Simulated scan of single mutants.
Amino acid sequence: MGQKIIRFSDLTGEHVENDDDLVRIVVHRHPDLADGPVEIEALAGELAAVEELALDLVTIELHVPGSDEPRTVVMEAGAFDRLASAAPMAEVLRGAKPAARSVPSQSAASLAVKEKVNYASLENAGRPHKGRTTDAEKQVVQQHLEEINERLATEGVRTIDLANSEHVSRYGLEALARAIGVTQD
């Protein structure tokens, strides 16, 4: 018995005839987003006006005296530009000094280098971590999933589950999940 997966646009509910017409959308920030970035899919035609609707935004950090941490503010570029009254904002920015970057102490920097784990290596790929999953790690997991899951199970770490949409998305395993008939919610 075979299975047929019917896909719909997350935005409009419209039936997807061809997977090549789908656009993957990663939502990084939204007032209703509580637990970090999420992915949705929509038909390319539904997104035709996105570029026209995009805003020119400025992200600034406010380092207020007496405050330990800077405050990040995102605002429309036009509103930010209007804050400059002595000269146009473009002129103010051209004359500004480069922002100082904080440099960690030598001992902290060397410690961080020593502890850095290469998740794109076969011995570390697939391990849970908080960082971004690189394309190199995804490729290793895609090519060696069974071997990696055996290693993870032996280590007592969670394995990569093709029925878990977060795992499938994180490691780019959509095609493999479809091939074995696992549907994603």
Score class of each variant (00 low, 15 high):
residue 18 N to V: 10
residue 145 L to Q: 05
residue 135 D to W: 08
residue 54 A to T: 15
residue 64 V to R: 07
residue 160 I to E: 02
residue 175 A to V: 15
residue 39 E to I: 07
residue 158 R to K: 12
residue 119 Y to K: 05
residue 61 E to D: 15
residue 108 A to C: 02
residue 178 R to K: 12
residue 147 E to A: 15
residue 19 D to N: 09
residue 146 E to C: 03
residue 101 R to H: 12
residue 71 R to M: 11
residue 3 Q to P: 02
residue 55 L to P: 07
residue 165 S to F: 06
residue 185 D to R: 11
residue 74 V to F: 06
residue 134 T to L: 09
residue 127 R to D: 15
residue 105 S to L: 05
residue 37 P to D: 06
residue 151 R to F: 07
residue 110 S to G: 04
residue 127 R to T: 15
residue 128 P to A: 10
residue 176 L to M: 15
residue 96 A to M: 04
residue 38 V to W: 06
residue 68 D to M: 11
residue 51 E to Q: 11
residue 114 K to T: 13
residue 156 G to T: 05
residue 128 P to M: 06
residue 135 D to Q: 10
residue 128 P to H: 07
residue 135 D to T: 12
residue 12 T to P: 00
residue 162 L to W: 03
residue 82 R to V: 05
residue 17 E to Q: 12
residue 84 A to W: 00
residue 64 V to Y: 09
residue 129 H to V: 06
residue 17 E to V: 06
residue 63 H to E: 13
residue 98 P to W: 02
residue 92 V to T: 10
residue 28 H to K: 11
residue 12 T to L: 00
residue 90 A to H: 14
residue 145 L to T: 13
residue 184 Q to G: 01
residue 1 M to K: 03
residue 95 G to V: 04
residue 170 R to E: 12
residue 7 R to I: 02
residue 160 I to D: 00
residue 116 K to V: 08
residue 170 R to D: 10
residue 65 P to W: 01
residue 155 E to L: 11
residue 77 A to F: 04
residue 73 V to T: 04
residue 74 V to T: 14
residue 103 V to F: 06
residue 156 G to A: 03
residue 125 A to V: 09
residue 65 P to F: 04
residue 141 V to D: 01
residue 48 A to G: 08
residue 83 L to A: 05
residue 45 G to K: 10
residue 149 N to P: 15
residue 154 T to K: 09
residue 95 G to Y: 08
residue 38 V to Q: 08
residue 171 Y to S: 10
residue 78 G to L: 12
residue 67 S to I: 11
residue 100 A to N: 14
residue 98 P to D: 12
residue 134 T to K: 03
residue 7 R to A: 02
residue 5 I to G: 00
residue 119 Y to H: 07
residue 110 S to A: 07
residue 174 E to N: 03
residue 52 E to N: 14
residue 152 L to M: 03
residue 96 A to H: 00
residue 38 V to G: 01
residue 135 D to S: 14
residue 25 I to T: 02
residue 52 E to I: 10
residue 138 K to R: 15
residue 179 A to R: 13
residue 112 A to W: 02
residue 55 L to A: 13
residue 174 E to L: 06
residue 2 G to S: 14
residue 159 T to Y: 10
residue 137 E to W: 12
residue 148 I to A: 10
residue 119 Y to G: 08
residue 7 R to C: 00
residue 118 N to M: 10
residue 35 D to Y: 05
residue 91 E to T: 10
residue 174 E to I: 04
residue 141 V to K: 03
residue 140 V to W: 04
residue 106 Q to G: 08
residue 117 V to S: 04
residue 132 R to Y: 09
residue 6 I to L: 05
residue 62 L to W: 01
residue 158 R to P: 12
residue 54 A to F: 02
residue 30 H to I: 06
residue 82 R to S: 14
residue 129 H to W: 04
residue 36 G to Q: 08
residue 82 R to K: 13
residue 40 I to K: 01
residue 170 R to H: 02
residue 58 V to I: 07
residue 125 A to T: 05
residue 137 E to F: 09
residue 184 Q to A: 05
residue 58 V to E: 05
residue 8 F to A: 00
residue 68 D to I: 07
residue 109 A to D: 03
residue 50 V to C: 02
residue 115 E to W: 05
residue 154 T to R: 06
residue 170 R to P: 01
residue 135 D to M: 13
residue 34 A to D: 07
residue 67 S to L: 09
residue 61 E to G: 07
residue 116 K to R: 11
residue 173 L to C: 00
residue 53 L to A: 14
